[in-house]
Amino acid sequence: MAISDVLSHRAFAQAPRRGAATRLLEDERWLAAVLLLPTVILLGLFIAYPFVEGVWLSVTDATVGVPGHFVGLANFTALLHDSIFLVAVRNTFVYTAVATVLKLALGLWLALLLNRHFRGKAFTRAFVLLPFIIPTVLSTFAWKWMFDPTFSVINWTLFQLGIIHGRINWLGDPSLALISVIIVNVWRGVPFYAISLLAGLQTINPELQEAAAIDGARPWQRFWHVTWPLLLPVTMVVVLFSVIQTFADFQLVYVLTGGGPANATQLFATYAYQIGVGTGLLSQGAAVSLAMFPFLLIIVVVQLLYIRRVEVH
């Protein structure tokens, strides 16, 4: 009784004196603006402003403590002659391409397995997410320990199995370091692929598999002709997200190798950090990180166009 009474009492009490603000908010244009405001402020403060500031920094000669003057594209032309930058570009592309292909392949395989019925399905699905849930820095430290030349559990296992006879210097060997870093990235990224693709798989009507089986398609043909085309839109979105994240990856490499040895694992983000924050050359650091932008833009545009084409058809 009490609540309804109070409510009706209030409603009556407020009805006659509706203020100007209330009337203004009943106008949808104003209401829309008011509702959008928090988002606009957040995005502006944490994304638009740093981005614009970054663009500005990249065309000045600012260093830590020195405001700097406009220098045009001098920072960018300097990058073209910076051998470490060119190594970082090559590394970033190799890192992104290899990691994405591996993550997609393993994630898809895992998703197809998890899409079957078996005992403990729900538990296994939750368990698979673990690498994704653990904070990257923590899990990467664990990997660093596993890659340690002296204490590596991987080396120990391989040694006990009689596969190797010496020690493998996973992170110290320039030819192995990038591979090691890619392994960790794949380990961390596969759950995202697996769970997203699993969600995609579950939207596909299982009757289609049965129809295809009766139509004479073997398991591999059922996957290729039915499952894969229907999963493609989801796959493209997942790959899009993943490529952006992998391309701009920072913490994993920073914790494992810091870009070394001898820049063998230097990526866009780590190099930008090293120059901009480590050395204090803010403007050049901004130029390095902004150099990522055109590449990412091309990747995103191509993929979005492709997704749209798939969805229209």
Partner: peptide, 29 residues
């Protein structure tokens, strides 16, 4: 296996391949 039984089945929800044209749906088998 179903494919080796020389049968054809019509499903309650049609189970047409949504990404294929009508022609390709019929030609698939």
């Amino acid at each position: 296996a179903p494919m080796d039984r020389d049968i054809a089945m019509v499903f309650q929800n049609y189970a047409l391949y949504p990404h294929m044209s009508v022609y390709d749906n019929m030609a698939f088998g």
